[in-house]
Simulated scan of single mutants.
Amino acid sequence: MRIAVAAAMSMAMAAPAGAITYHVDPAHARVRAKVGFFGLGSKTALFPKVEGRVALSDRDAQGLTLDVSIDAQALEAGDPLTRSRLRGADFFDVDRYRHVIFHGSSMTRTGPHSAQVAGTISARGVTRPATLAVDFSRDFAAMTGREPVHIAASTRIDRRDFGVTAYPLIVGRQVTIAIDADLMPGRE
């Protein structure tokens, strides 16, 4: 609960002066988490309820504040049994930990419209460092904060780092997270 409250407060804070701000369009944002299953295939969970904001510094190429909140209670999966297990105490434990939070605090540009965003992921009451590889649909030089921007981002985590250790012989340790979202012009 503290993480969700801290994230909500962080998202409500005003962007620094001179920042180019965007908010995540909840109608056009999806997060997918994919994990190996029996070493032969994979299982994917979809998180359709995502909200957040991004503030890019117009003065500092590395300046960034990114806060994204994912509603784990809205988790969807390929079948009811998998959905129930993923929402349960062995995995996301959504009754105790409703949100998964990503907070990005710095950005290293890797191309005209790509970057590495360093920050943290908080899930199940645990916070760990994480880096997102992000592709923006626009060149950084063309971003003014007045036009929509599409992002595709990904990272990989070890589920054990967040206390998710159930079914170690069936479910893989590495989870690939993919974010697909439209960012809309700033909203304070």
Rank of each mutant, 00 (worst) to 15 (best):
G119L: 02
T44G: 01
G78P: 00
G163C: 07
G172V: 05
A19Y: 14
S122N: 04
I179K: 06
R124P: 01
K34H: 06
G125M: 06
G145T: 11
G119Q: 02
R96K: 13
R59K: 13
G104W: 13
A12T: 01
F102D: 01
A152K: 06
T65V: 12
M9G: 07
T44R: 02
P185H: 05
R53M: 14
S57R: 08
E147P: 04
A15W: 09
H23I: 15
G52V: 11
R146F: 14
P26D: 00
A33R: 07
F102I: 04
D58L: 02
S137Y: 09
P112L: 14
A72D: 10
A7E: 09
I157T: 05
T155N: 03
D67G: 03
A15V: 01
L86I: 08
G52A: 12
S10E: 13
R85K: 10
G104Y: 13
V134F: 03
A29E: 06
V134D: 05
P148E: 10
A7W: 05
R146T: 15
M107F: 04
P168S: 02
A166C: 12
K49P: 00
A141K: 13
T144A: 08
S106G: 11
D58F: 02
P26C: 03
S10H: 03
M11T: 03
V117R: 01
F102N: 01
D90G: 06
A89W: 04
S10R: 13
G41A: 14
S42C: 02
T65G: 09
R85T: 09
Q174H: 11
D139T: 12
P129D: 02
V175C: 04
